[in-house]
Structures are given as structure tokens and as C-alpha cells.
């Protein structure tokens, strides 16, 4: 499969007399294959928006390599710009223009046919409100307009930064459906979002960034599987047998967590082993269920941003790849 977007060793450093040197991007890598919906995740301040801005020529990198559709950036950006639709951060438009005017001016600047404006307005559900001034729009409507502006070029690569921000539940579902349809039509979509449930639902693959470095990447199922750690929930017919079962399994080298009415086992390659070990001791299993991890828990673990009671995490407190004792370096993924 060919790569539509490639980033290797991207670096962006900010120097400030007050705050010293800060590496917004510290050798970041990313690869997005053609026709995928690719999730781009990271905590606040991790470098997501810096990456997208750098990719789109708004920020000059200090090092590294970027390419879109096989064209090296930023040198060839003017060549590929017509095939890349993007919204970066919150949508911003001139408040006194209508949506139709806004898109019409962009279409004219891009030498696109006027009817394309109506097509994208229809697509994002703004057809009936297109003549109203943008300043009267809700955040969700502005978001729809932003997506419409990104779709105007009918791009081969669509980059959307928080497209679901401000959308109502119906709008989020419509956005999800739109992303899927676009990908099915051959468009590659890079989606940056904090709504991890959405990402898990609609993305084929993900890249997770923390403190300017990639901490995980790959197909969603692969990333989830790599972090499921073989966790299995076990219930027995008699709750009173749980201590004995825990002892048996621990002796067999399985990590056991004891809960009031069940056990949580980790590091289990084959659940059948558990069943066999317990049966040999006359303990009969009533439930043996692999515990599925979701993207949110994987994200929180990888970026070390899970809330801790009594602590107030600061924005730059997350995982840096390569530091001792941090997650994200094992399991065949991560930098």
C-alpha cells in the first residue's frame, strides 16, 4: 500500500528567554496509507497541531522529512496543496460573510467551479443556512463550514483537526458517516480528535503522539491487542473458591487480581490454560471472558495522562518515549 503522508524525524524547537528551549516535535514519525481513515491522537500540548501546521507549511520545522502524495515538503507544497484539504484547530472565518460567500471566495481563489460550493454545503448540512452570516452560527455550524471548506477541493488527502468539536450527537454521527464515505470513495483522511470512542469506531489506523514523539502507531486492532495484556475475567460457581483459585493460578505464573466476586488475570496467552488449571483442582469456571481494552485506556496508559486522585496533572506531564519507566516502548510498536 502506498503512503499518502510520510513524516520522519520531524523536529520543531521553540526558544524563549523566559522558558528556555522546548521541543514541540522531537523526532516525530508518522505514516498514513492511501484510502485509510487515520486517527492522530495525543494529549494537549503533545505536538498534534504543530505537526499539522508544519505539514501544511504554516510552521517551519527545524529538521526532519515530510512528504505528501510522494512530494517532498515544504518545497513541493504548492504542487500538492490543491489535493490537500485541511482544517487546523478551531474554525475561523470572517464573521460578516455568509457561508456561501466564504466558500465562494475560496473556490474562486482555487479556480474551482461555483457548483462545488453548493455540493459541499449540501454534504455538511448547511444548505438552508448558507446565506446567513457566519457570526450567527453556532460552534457546530462553524465546524461544518470548516469541513466544507476542506472538502471544497475534493482533496485526495483530508486533514481534520478536531472536526467533531461542538457538533451535536447527530452531527457527530453524520461526521462519522461522512468520513467513512469519503474513505470508501478513495480519499485518505487524517483525523485528529480527543473523542477516542469516535476514533476507535471510524479509524483504520492510529498514531499516538506524546511530548513531540510517536508512542504508538498501527492498525487500531493491533494497537488495542498489543495493550490488552491478555487480561481475562474469571468467575467461579462458588465465590468461596476464589482464594484457592488465585493461589493455583499464581503458582502457574499468572498475575492475579482479586475482586470481591471474580478474578482478573493478566498475561494469559490462552484462556483454555486457565480452565484446565482450575479444573485440575476441582474448581469449575462459570465465566471466562477476555477483557477488551478500549482506545481511551490505551491512550491514557501510553501517554501517562490518566487522572490520579488528589493530583492535578499539568499539560506537559505525559510520556516521553525512551525515558526509563515509561510506557510505550514494548509490544512491537512505539518508537
Amino acid at each position: 500500500m502506498s503512503a499518502v503522508l510520510e513524516i520522519e524525524g520531524l523536529r520543531k524547537t521553540y526558544r524563549s528567554r523566559k522558558r528556555g528551549v522546548r521541543h514541540a516535535l522531537d523526532g516525530f514519525d508518522m505514516r498514513v496509507e492511501a484510502g485509510q481513515v487515520h486517527g492522530f491522537l495525543g494529549p494537549n500540548g503533545s505536538g498534534k497541531t504543530t505537526t499539522l501546521r508544519t505539514l501544511l507549511g504554516l510552521i517551519k520545522p527545524n529538521g526532519g522529512r515530510m512528504a505528501i502524495l510522494g512530494q517532498e515538503l515544504p518545497h513541493s507544497l504548492p504542487v500538492v496543496a490543491g489535493q490537500v484539504g485541511a482544517i487546523v484547530e478551531s474554525p475561523q472565518f470572517f464573521p460578516h460573510f455568509s457561508a456561501r460567500d466564504t466558500l465562494g471566495l475560496l473556490a474562486q481563489a482555487g479556480e474551482l467551479p461555483r457548483q462545488r460550493v453548493d455540493e459541499v454545503l449540501e454534504l455538511v448540512g448547511l444548505r438552508d443556512r448558507a446565506g446567513e452570516r457566519v457570526k450567527t452560527y453556532s460552534l457546530g455550524m462553524k465546524q461544518r463550514l470548516a469541513v466544507a471548506s476542506a472538502l471544497l477541493k475534493n482533496p485526495r488527502l483530508l486533514i481534520l483537526d478536531e472536526p467533531a468539536n461542538g457538533l451535536d450527537p447527530g452531527g457527530i454521527r453524520e461526521m462519522r458517516s461522512l468520513m467513512r464515505d469519503l474513505a470508501a470513495a478513495g480519499m485518505t483522511v487524517v483525523l485528529s480528535s480527543h473523542i477516542l470512542g469516535e476514533i476507535q469506531l471510524i479509524c483504520d489506523s492510529v498514531t499516538i503522539i506524546s511530548l513531540g514523539r510517536r508512542v504508538a502507531f498501527g492498525p487500531v486492532e493491533q494497537v488495542l491487542a498489543a495493550h490488552s495484556q491478555g487480561t481475562v475475567r474469571v468467575r467461579l460457581e462458588a465465590v468461596t473458591d476464589l482464594p484457592k483459585a488465585a493461589d493455583t493460578l499464581t503458582r502457574a505464573g499468572i498475575r492475579v487480581g482479586t475482586e470481591p466476586d471474580h478474578l482478573l488475570l493478566t498475561g494469559v496467552d490462552k484462556p483454555a490454560t486457565v480452565s484446565r488449571l482450575l479444573a485440575e483442582q476441582g474448581l469449575y469456571v462459570s465465566e471466562l471472558t477476555p477483557v477488551a481494552v478500549d482506545l481511551e485506556s490505551v491512550f491514557l496508559e501510553l501517554t501517562a495522562t490518566a487522572p490520579v486522585p488528589g493530583q492535578h496533572r499539568q499539560v506537559d506531564q505525559s510520556t516521553k518515549v525512551g525515558e526509563p519507566g515509561t510506557a510505550g516502548t514494548g509490544g512491537g510498536w512505539g518508537a
Binding site: L58, V88, Q92, L106, A109, S149
Partner: peptide, 18 residues
Amino acid sequence: GAEWSTGGMMNLLLWRPK
């Protein structure tokens, strides 16, 4: 000035990155 402060300039540069 208003193009810069309302984000219009950034939008335009996404279309015309020159």
C-alpha cells in the same frame, strides 16, 4: 489585519501556500 485576526489569512495560505 482582520484577515490575520479572524484566521482568514491562514485559511488562504492552506489554499495558496505561497
